[in-house]
C-alpha cells in the first residue's frame, strides 16, 4: 500500500524522466541489493546448517574424515531409541526444566509484583536483579563453583541451614544437577522480572484499590488481582523459559571441563545438548550427534508453536 501511494504521489514529478514501471523496478533492484548481504550470510550460516543438521542425522560421519558421508537411513534415530545415555540425557533435561521453569517463573513474578508496589528505588532494584543475566555464564559458573566447594561459603550455609552434606556440589552426583539449577536460575530471574514488570505495569491501579477496599490483603491481591491480570505473561515466561532451559550447555560444560567426558560427575549434568556435543566433538560421531540435534530442534519448534498460539500478537 505504502509503496503504491508513493508511486502515485511521485508520478507527476517523475514524468519525462522515468516511467512508473522503471521507478518500481529500480526499487526492486534496491531491495535485492540491500538485502543481499543478510540473505547471503543467513543462507550460508543459518539456513544451510539447519538443513545440513537434518541431512547429517541420516548419515554416518566421522569428525576427522568429515568429507566422507555415508547415508544410513534412520539408523541414527533407531540407535537413539535404544541408547541409555540418550534416555538419561532426556531425563536429566526433563528434571532440569521441571525444576528451573516453575522456580524462576514464581520467583520472578513475586519479585516483579513487590517491585511494582514500591515507589523509591525501582530502577536500582531492577538494574541489580538484571545484573547476573548480563554477566558471562563462564564467569558466574566459575564463581559459584568456589561458593559451593567443600567448606565454601554457600556450601557451608546450605549444610547449616538445610542439612545438606558440606561437599563440593558440582563433584557430587546427587548435588551436581541442583548446582546447575542454582547457577542457571540465578542468571535468568532478573530477565523474567523485567518481562513481568512490563505486564504488571498494565494492571489498572483501580483493580488493586477496589480489592483493598474489599479487605483483600497483600497475598490475596497478588493471588486474585496480579496473577490473573498477567496470565498471558506467565504463559509466555513459562514457554520461553522452557525453550531456553532445554538448551542449557555452557554451565554444564564449565563444571566438567577439567575432564574429557562432559556431563560429569557420573552423567549427573549430561543434558541433551551436552549429549549431542559429547557425541559430535568428543566421540567424533557427527551423524549421531546431529540426530540428537534434530530432537532438540523438534522440542524447540514445539515450544515456539505453543508461544505463537498463546500470544498471537507477537
Amino acid at each position: 500500500m505504502r509503496h503504491l501511494r508513493h508511486l502515485a504521489l511521485g508520478a507527476p514529478r517523475a514524468e519525462g524522466r522515468r516511467s512508473l514501471a522503471v521507478q518500481a523496478k529500480r526499487d526492486w533492484g534496491a531491495a535485492y541489493v540491500l538485502l543481499a548481504p543478510a540473505a547471503g550470510l543467513l543462507g550460508l550460516w543459518f539456513i544451510y546448517p539447519i538443513v545440513d543438521t537434518v541431512v547429517l542425522s541420516f548419515q554416518r560421519v566421522n569428525l576427522f574424515q568429515f568429507s566422507q558421508r555415508t547415508y544410513v537411513g534412520f539408523s541414527n534415530f533407531h540407535q537413539l531409541l535404544d541408547d541409555p545415555a540418550f534416555h538419561h540425557s532426556l531425563f536429566i533435561t526433563l528434571v532440569f526444566v521441571v525444576v528451573v521453569v516453575p522456580a524462576q517463573t514464581a520467583a520472578a513474578l513475586a519479585l516483579a509484583a513487590v517491585l511494582q508496589g514500591v515507589q523509591v528505588g525501582r530502577t536500582f532494584f531492577r538494574t541489580t536483579f538484571f545484573l547476573p543475566y548480563m554477566t558471562s555464564t563462564v564467569a558466574v559458573t566459575t564463581v559459584f563453583m568456589k561458593l559451593f566447594v567443600i567448606g565454601g561459603p554457600l556450601a557451608a550455609v546450605a549444610s547449616a541451614v538445610f542439612g545438606v552434606a558440606n561437599a563440593t556440589w558440582y563433584a557430587q552426583p546427587n548435588l551436581a544437577l541442583a548446582f546447575l539449577v542454582i547457577v542457571y536460575v540465578y542468571m535468568y530471574i532478573g530477565l523474567y522480572v523485567v518481562v513481568f514488570l512490563g505486564g504488571i505495569e498494565n494492571v489498572p491501579v483501580e483493580l488493586h484499590e477496589a480489592a483493598k477496599v474489599d479487605g483483600a490483603g497483600v497475598v490475596q491481591r497478588f493471588r486474585f488481582v496480579t496473577v490473573p491480570s498477567v496470565r498471558p505473561y506467565i504463559f509466555f515466561v513459562v514457554v520461553a523459559g522452557f525453550i531456553q532451559a532445554v538448551q542449557v550447555f555452557d554451565q554444564a560444560y564449565v563444571i566438567a571441563s577439567n575432564g574429557a567426558i562432559l556431563g560429569s560427575p557420573a552423567g549427573a549434568t549430561a543434558t541433551l545438548v551436552i549429549f549431542l556435543y559429547q557425541q559430535a566433538f568428543r566421540l567424533n560421531n557427527l551423524g549421531y550427534g546431529s540426530a540428537a540435534a534434530v530432537v532438540l530442534l523438534l522440542i524447540v519448534f514445539a515450544g515456539t508453536v505453543l508461544t505463537r498460539r498463546l500470544l498471537p500478537e507477537r
Partner: peptide, 29 residues
C-alpha cells in the same frame, strides 16, 4: 520496500528466529 518475495523473506526470518545455535553447531563447525 515492496518487492516480489518479501512475504517469503519475512516468514523465513520468523521461522529461523528461534533456532538455537546448539542445534546447528555441528554443520557450522
Amino acid at each position: 520496500i515492496r518487492y516480489p518475495g518479501r512475504t517469503v523473506t519475512f516468514l523465513v526470518v520468523l521461522a529461523v528466529l528461534m533456532v538455537p545455535l546448539q542445534a546447528i553447531l555441528i554443520p557450522l563447525y
